[in-house]
Amino acid sequence: MAIPVSTAAAGSTPDTAGKKSAAPVGGAAAISATRFATLMRPMLEKTTPLFALLSQTIATIEPYVIALVAYFNHLATILKPYHPEEFLPAMCGFVLVFFGGNFFTLCAAVEAYRLIGFDDTKIALKKLKHSYDVAMAASKKDDEVDADGDGVADVKQIDARALAVRKAAVVAKAVDPDLVTDALVAINGGLMAVVATLRVRFAACVTIGSTVGEMAHNAVQTHAEPALLELTPSEYKKWVPCGLRYGCQLCGFVIAWFLQMSISAFHSATRGAQMFARGSLTYATRRGYLNPTAIDEKGRVFNACVFALAFVGFWSQFWSGYSLPFPLNILLLPVTFAEYAMRFVVFMLG
């Protein structure tokens, strides 16, 4: 009869033996982690100057950003008695009512971001700003010491690069990474909504343009192509069918783009009329010119103003061919650049 022989050490229980046999697994994981750290250390050492340069750049730009924010805060303080929260949306709404069709790509992007990611981004950025202020306070406190023992804090005399690196280290320790993640997720969600909206609109224009171009090419091929072939020299006749086909598709795309501008102009006129009516009626009510019930967005006065203004603005845009008059085409030049940049992004995404 065979006697079973235990492989466990003498004096050890089965559980203890199992634990001892599992120990090499942890040791292998630790060895793998050590090897990975050894491989990554040279790469991190090479990227250290890059992070130092980035920190120094941020430290250089930071005073200008702070000064710009302080200037806007000062401007907001000056305009506060005039209630900018009322007249600024009203002015933007007026521009949208009469000229929103010129910026339909930008309006679509802003509207998509407002619906999807604006609220989450605003909340996340507020929390992140609070965390950043705490980090800056900690960095400022760390930079001040009482060197001469007179009870007065003296700024440490260190070079700008070392100071930038130290500030970056303090910020990295003080800022909550979860807040950074929330902000990035909110911004990314809003940007994805913008990209999806623009791609859908571009795809609709391409589809409608191709369909219209195909129908136009059928008619042109039957009636105009024979005459063009007769008038064209023999060495260039081969380009006539191709040129007609792509010319018809281009015309169809232009027609589809104009239709999309008309739809967007109607949307911007409606949205702008709502903003203008809300701001102007609130101002008039606060001044005592109107009854407080006039700003009720479900009331007859408010809706009548919105629809009347939206109709006038849309008809004005359509009649003028979606063009900007002389003073506004200069004042709104930055917005025009942003619109064309957004259109370029749409074409690249398409």
Rank of each mutant, 00 (worst) to 15 (best):
R300K: 12
R245K: 14
Y64H: 13
A308G: 13
I61N: 04
A294V: 11
A135C: 07
I58A: 14
I158N: 05
V175F: 05
V206E: 10
G213S: 02
F258G: 00
G252K: 01
G209D: 02
G27M: 05
K80I: 00
K19E: 13
A164F: 03
V134F: 03
K141D: 12
K126W: 06
E144Y: 08
D146E: 11
M342I: 07
G243R: 01
P327Y: 06
N218D: 14
P24V: 09
I58L: 11
F266E: 03
A67G: 10
A37H: 10
M40S: 11
A277R: 00
P81I: 04
D120C: 02
C305Q: 00
I255C: 10
T57R: 07
R286T: 11
T77N: 15
V152W: 06
G288F: 12
A256C: 06
L198H: 06
V212W: 00
A28H: 07
K238T: 03
L229A: 04
A76G: 13
G279L: 05
K127R: 14
I295E: 03
K238W: 11
V346L: 10
P42N: 06
A310E: 01
R201N: 13
R35H: 09
A153F: 10
F36S: 07
C251Q: 00
K173D: 14
V301S: 03
K298F: 04
F307H: 07
S280W: 07
D146G: 09
Q157T: 14
F347L: 15
V95Q: 05
F103Y: 15
Y283A: 15
S316R: 10
P233W: 03
G93F: 01
T222A: 09
T57Y: 03
K167S: 08
A265S: 15
A172R: 15
W315P: 00
R278F: 08
F344E: 08
V170M: 07
A23E: 13
E86H: 12
A138V: 06
K129D: 10
P292W: 06
L244P: 00
E235F: 12
A304E: 01
L106T: 15
I330D: 05
E85H: 13
A338P: 01
V25W: 12
V5Y: 04
A269W: 04
G350D: 06
